[in-house]
Write a protein that binds this DNA or RNA. Structure first.
Length: 962
RNA sequence: GCGGAUAUGGCGUAAUCGGUAGCCGCGUCAGACUUAGGAUCUGGUUCCGAGAGGAGUGGGGGUUCGAGUCCCCCUAUCCGCACCA
């Protein structure tokens, strides 16, 4: 009987579904294991061969763990909210829910054909009220908590209220937008509005005027990870900075824990490094530089007079952040960012016009312009001076774009000799440059002769007062100590990470469970969740520029009945408007892995029992492109849930593998420029300039050979095409490009399943190379893998039909089996799935050569292949006479007696000794080693008589003195 | 600019601990079977050389009895961040 995958595969897929083979329950005697894929966004284009790569890899691991006796949670769902469905809705009027539903159905159909072991009873969709109820719930918890640095965790906002009433801000160390200082008396004297305003300063989900990434084309704000080079990741539209009232998550409160947590997880170093860079921790000092107001009356009378009129009075000093406190003796000027609040107060009348012009110019620049001209130096002098607190020197204060508002304090001390940006600025404006660090002790040179600054944090301090002669590291410590003694600054840590902007001016997302009373946000009661997404007449922003939810007729909150009511009922007495923004894509994906543990629970996000049983994700597979997005947000989300006693592990994903991107492999035909009806085979082209390369659909090309008939039918203009062939074939060119429709290089998995079967597709995707590696999709090798499955099938077929001897297993056969068990087990454990496939091929070839027909060998081999090719395994398992699913079988155990290699591998002679390398079992003795050496055929030419002395080094090396 | 990774036949790759480099597959060459084959099977296939033999894991140096693997320098490619003080 032939290997008929087309009949076998659907039959077993039905069997699995009908018998609930992949259904998993929470609990039982078996140890638990959680294998997770990053759930997909169901796009209209369907799956291409890149998507299943990670799913197949994780499915292999999940099935392997299950055969090893684990209770394996292996779920799948859909990240169903997102921009494409909404863009499509704006264009066609089709409701995003309809499009999404359709796309999901298509995804499911495609996934089912590949034979995954997902427990579909646990499916989640982020756009379903039953699911997003808990996204909204978590948002309310974030709104209802603040981060207490002393406790090192999130605490309820109610405890903060009590604290304020008792002692004000005294002794409070909490994450906040702006450091506040007030007494209990002040707190008690404030009205509701003022109190709410103060609390907003501490909430983990807060509403504030923030400089946001505004994308006019998409009509929404975007998070930092959704913007690259000043353009939106989706669509590539320009993004500008804009001050808007937005919801944000205070993820910065968790910055240190997000850094520390990386120590505990088993991720690749490169991904950990990506996250560390993104969080951008840097240690340094905050130092207050006093403004020079009183002295130098002859220089600053204008500024002084101006400042005296000011209300409020100018602050006497301002704060800078530096990672190089050791260079404080080399400060020759200060720079403020154009947004700095101090600029207006300190600028002298003479400089006023210039400064205002500069600030206005800088503010109107788009993010893209600014980033494109990073190298261009610009700035303006304020006319004001500060005083270096250690040298008491007077130093000019400038304003420049190169200092960023969002980092540190938006003000720096400039040390042009030891910072390349300060250096460029000083050179451009002719400001002094003073060397304060040298490579060798006391080796100073004239900075005027320098072509670049000396930025390295190595060497010795020079010209630096009391730290002169110290090493850079010592000088840093000494300066900070002095600054702390003087009370003008302190050690501090800064992070590059910003709070996550959480509002989107879109329709297709989770609504905020928030209504506005007197323009202040209030949460709707938890028990009223979910707050369902309302219907709207249009998906575009409103005429007044409000988000699409502004079109909703029924979108107001009645606080008496606690229900959603018609907008016309708004009276601002008991009926209030609801928030019009929706949540961003990462909201729904930040906690989905927890919901899989208990997906049907309507009383809680997930039960204590469920999370207590599964704990966290043991093994997570997904793309590295989520390194600065989802993987940061999810860790933050999880840490917060941990703080409030929901999650039981601080880190959500213990081990993580990043599957590589699958690129497209495009094919080209070459059309003659001289004769546009003529197509020349690749090998016959003399000069590439004579021909035009045209993308051709890879589905009408096989092993780079063009199917001429199908090419003629492909497009009308090629109907009359003529060809110059080599050996009767038209050979196409090829190139690796992004997989995209426009390049006709999208490989659809369905076509391959139809042609070769799911098992071949699964094996081939693994055989392509290491899962982690990026690689172009290339169908050229798939025949080889398919041929292997046919051989594998035949091996069993010959045995079952009695075409091979039915005698018991020979030693040779057992050796093949046990070496295969060992190798495949090791390969899966270290996630080297491509070599595991090779191992099966070798074993099959060897057993075919041995005409193996014994059940003792063939049965365990079927179990070994289950993770890779479950359909063929299931079929053969039943043909061997078993009942029930092979998925419930036991992973075979390797018998080490069949593994011993006892040949000398590599003899060498030196210094009158000989050294042999021998493969021996780990527990071998010296006597075993000598015997092995003597028995080895190669030893004859080296050993004459008994060895005089043998030095046995465990495992490998034997020195023999002759 | 900073950080991370990678580099092996015509191609995808393998070599798990520093131990005979090139397993497995594609492609290709030769052969068998066949009316035929885009089916199946057998054998060859790193390069140079008729051969004996020699060279060989991006380039250069080092450690070692022994290096694809470890160390230093360089080059190329990919990825992440990028005026982050």
């Amino acid at each position: 009987m032939d290997y008929n995958f087309g009949e076998i595969e659907p039959r077993w897929q039905n069997y699995w579904r009908e018998h609930g083979v992949y259904h998993v329950s929470n609990g039982g005697a078996k140890p638990h294991y959680y294998v997770l894929d990053m759930f997909p966004y169901p796009s209209g284009a369907g799956l291409h061969v890149g998507h299943p790569l990670g799913y197949i890899a994780s499915d292999i691991y999940a099935r392997y763990k299950r055969l090893q006796g684990f209770n394996v949670l292996h779920p799948m769902g859909y990240d169903a909210y997102g921009l494409p469905a909404e863009q499509y809705a704006i264009q066609t009027g089709q409701h995003p829910a309809v499009t999404t539903e359709k796309n999901i159905a298509r995804y499911r159909e495609q996934l089912d054909k590949i034979g995954f072991s997902f427990d579909w009873d646990r499916e989640v969709r982020t756009c379903e009220p039953r699911y997003y109820k808990w996204t909204q719930w978590t948002f309310l918890q974030l709104f209802g908590h603040y981060y207490d640095n002393t406790a090192g965790k999130a605490l309820p906002i109610s405890s903060l209220v009590e604290r304020f009433a008792r002692q004000g801000t005294e002794g409070l160390d909490a994450a906040c937008t702006e450091a506040l200082d007030f007494t209990a008396g002040e707190w008690r004297s404030w009205d509701e509005a003022r109190r709410q305003q103060v609390l907003m300063n501490y909430r983990l989900a807060y509403l504030a005027d923030t400089a946001v990434n505004w994308c006019a084309e998409l009509g929404t704000v975007l998070a930092n990870d959704e913007v690259v080079n000043g353009l939106s990741v989706r669509g590539g539209y320009p993004v500008e900075r804009k001050l808007m009232r937005q919801w944000s998550l205070r993820i910065t409160a968790y910055a240190q824990r997000l850094v520390d947590g990386l120590e505990q997880v088993d991720w690749t170093d490169s991904l950990k490094e990506i996250q560390r860079n993104w969080i951008g921790r840097s240690e340094g000092a905050a130092v207050w530089f006093p403004l020079d107001v009183k002295s130098n009356a002859n220089v600053l009378p204008g500024a002084q007079a101006y400042m005296q009129q000011c209300d409020p009075q100018p602050v006497p000093s301002f704060e800078i952040f530096t990672t190089r406190p050791d260079t404080i003796f080399g400060v020759t000027f200060m720079v403020l960012c154009p947004e700095h609040e101090l600029i207006d107060r300190i600028t002298t009348p003479e400089q006023r016009q210039q400064v205002q012009d500069y600030v206005a110019w800088a503010k109107n620049r788009s993010e893209r312009e600014r980033q494109a001209e990073v190298k261009r130096v610009s700035g303006v002098f304020t006319g004001a001076y500060a005083v270096n607190p250690l040298t008491e020197e007077r130093i000019p204060i400038w304003v420049s774009e190169y200092v960023l508002a969002g980092y540190g304090t938006g003000a720096i001390m400039a040390v042009p000799a030891h910072d390349s940006r300060d250096f460029a600025f000083a050179r451009h404006f002719g400001l002094p440059i003073r060397q304060v660090v040298s490579v060798e002790k006391d080796a100073v040179s004239d900075p005027a002769t320098w072509t670049e600054s000396m930025d390295a944090k190595t060497g010795y301090a020079v010209n630096s007062g009391f730290v002169t002669g110290m090493k850079v590291k010592e000088a840093m410590k000494a300066v900070i100590d002095r600054i702390e003694e003087m009370g003008i600054g302190h050690r501090t840590v800064n992070y590059r990470l910003r709070d996550a902007i959480f509002s989107r001016q879109r329709y297709w997302g989770e609504p905020f469970p928030i209504y506005f009373k007197a323009d202040r946000p209030y949460p709707i009661p938890e028990e009223c969740l979910p707050l369902e997404l309302p219907e709207v007449s249009e998906f575009k922003p409103t005429a007044t520029g409000e988000p699409p939810l502004g079109h909703a007729k029924k979108w107001a909150w009645d606080t008496k009945t606690n229900t959603v009511v018609d907008c016309s009922a708004i009276d601002n007495e008991s009926v209030f408007p609801l928030e019009l923004s929706t949540m961003p894509g990462f909201a729904g994906s930040s906690g989905y892995y927890l919901r899989y543990m208990d997906p049907k629970n309507d009383e809680a996000y997930f039960s204590k029992e469920a999370v207590g049983y599964w704990q966290n994700v043991d093994f997570y597979v997904g793309g590295a492109e989520h390194g600065t997005g989802h993987l940061i947000y999810a860790r933050f989300w999880n840490k917060f849930l941990f703080d409030i006693g929901m999650a039981v592990k601080e880190e959500p994903f213990q081990k993580l593998i990043n599957q590589g991107m699958i690129q497209g492999r495009s094919n080209f035909v070459y059309r003659s420029k001289a004769d546009t009806g003529l197509f020349i085979s690749k090998g016959l082209i003399k000069d590439m300039n004579d021909v035009t390369a045209i993308h051709v659909d890879i589905n009408i090309v096989d092993n780079d050979v063009l199917d001429i008939e199908r090419f003629r039918e492909w497009r009308p203009e090629f109907k009359e095409a003529r060809f110059e062939l080599e050996e009767g074939k038209y050979i196409c060119g090829w190139e690796v490009e992004k997989m995209s429709k426009s390049m006709y290089n999208v490989q659809n998995p369905d076509d391959l399943v139809a042609r070769y079967g799911a098992d071949t597709l699964r094996l081939y995707e693994m055989f392509l190379g290491p899962v982690e590696q990026a690689k172009p999709w290339d169908t050229n090798g798939i025949e080889g893998v398919h041929r292997f499955l046919k051989k594998f099938w035949k091996l069993y077929d010959n045995s079952l039909t009695g075409q091979t001897s039915q005698a018991g297993p020979t030693k040779e056969e057992l050796k093949v089996l046990h070496q295969t068990i060992k190798k495949v087990t090791d390969d899966i454990e270290r996630f080297s799935l491509n070599t595991a496939v090779s191992t099966f091929m070798i074993a099959t070839n060897q057993l075919t050569d041995l005409k193996c027909a014994s059940r003792e060998v063939l049965e365990p081999l079927v179990v070994l292949i289950v993770p890779f090719a479950p359909h063929i395994a299931e079929e053969l398992w039943h043909q061997l006479g078993h009942e029930g699913s092979v998925c419930d079988a036991q992973w075979p155990v390797c018998d080490s007696q069949y593994l011993v290699e006892d040949t000398v591998k590599y003899p060498v002679q030196f210094n009158g000794k000989m050294r042999f390398t021998i493969d021996l079992p780990a527990d071998s003795t010296q006597a075993d080693a000598i015997a092995a050496v003597k028995a080895a055929p190669e030893s004859a030419k080296w050993l004459t008589g008994e060895p005089k002395k043998v030095i046995f080094v465990p495992k490998k090396i034997i020195n023999i003195v002759c």
